[in-house]
Design a protein around this nucleic acid. Structure first.
Lengths: 153, 153
DNA sequence: TTAAAACCTCAAGTTATATTGAGGTCAATA
DNA sequence: TATTGACCTCAATATAACTTGAGGTTTTAA
């Protein structure tokens, strides 16, 4: 009955429990750990143990991914959380503010594309590299690709 | 001087010329061909030749990618173009309308996330699978993941 | 005519984000 | 205590969307 976390003292969580509660697979938690997105320590038998706030961390990771933020970026942003103490509501709120700004940028970017796409595909400019749709100048104010990948279903 | 397309009759384009004009690599054109996103025929020496409208096709592919549409989806949508004749402006415009609707959905989805993200990360619900941010019910009206990947820079 | 530039195929490599499986250990319970 | 479920590591596989490289051919141009 690992889902019940019976007989574990001090609210330290097993990997199976965290997986079930956060809705990700055990292998994903292992993976996140190798990527330094989450931390654990080991018990005597070399099994992972987690502090309860790992649940929120995983939830925040998933939320950020839904916003289109890469794991690398998430890692960097999570690094701004306090290391010495359990993050407070205020700490988490600061994170969300940060991502909200990114999200606003992305939305604005998508809207700019939307506003141009009909005229642009309809006209001749798309056959040229000068087309504003994929002109790098308009890419979220950075030299990066600004690439977006979504499943359509 | 392949960029000049000298001595090729009937406006049939070489792969190097298409690459240069469309801003993608030759290898990408090969790749798109294996994915059936573009077509070519061969000359006597087994080299690819293209009709000029391939330039617009490639441009549209790139524009659609910038909108977050996968190559698989792009392929499906491009399949709606006429096979027997060169697509007209109207044909291309119909495509863009289709993608515009998808883009509107995505924007709305991002906005819903944005409106929730602060309250949601700040509160306790994010540690639970019931969090509306990554609740599947809200994912663009499909069972698909709706995953988004963007570079942040 | 011959050298360079462009082209060809096919296999392997790349990055991000995981998942799967093999082979073995640890812990909870009947 | 013995079984079973949970856990461990490490390597391989998966997908999308390409890129790179090796080894060989065709085309262009001096």
């Amino acid at each position: 009955m690992f889902a019940e976390q019976k007989k574990l003292i001090d609210a330290t969580l097993t990997v199976g429990y965290v997986a079930k509660r956060s809705g990700v697979k055990v292998s994903t938690l292992h993976f996140y750990e190798t990527k330094q997105l989450i931390k654990s320590w080991r018990n005597n038998g070399n099994q992972r143990r987690y502090k309860p706030d790992v649940l929120r961390r995983v939830a925040v990771i998933k939320a950020a991914q839904a916003m289109g933020i890469t794991l690398d970026d998430i890692k960097n942003t999570l690094a701004s959380l306090p290391d010495n103490r359990t993050p407070t509501k205020k700490d988490w709120s600061a994170l969300s503010k940060r991502w909200q700004a990114q999200l606003d940028e992305r939305i604005a970017y998508m809207q700019r594309i939307r506003d141009r796409v009909d005229g642009c595909i309809g006209c001749g400019c798309l056959s040229l590299k000068s087309c504003p749709i994929y002109n790098k100048d308009d890419h979220l104010g950075s030299e990066q690709s600004g690439a977006v990948l979504l499943n359509t279903g």
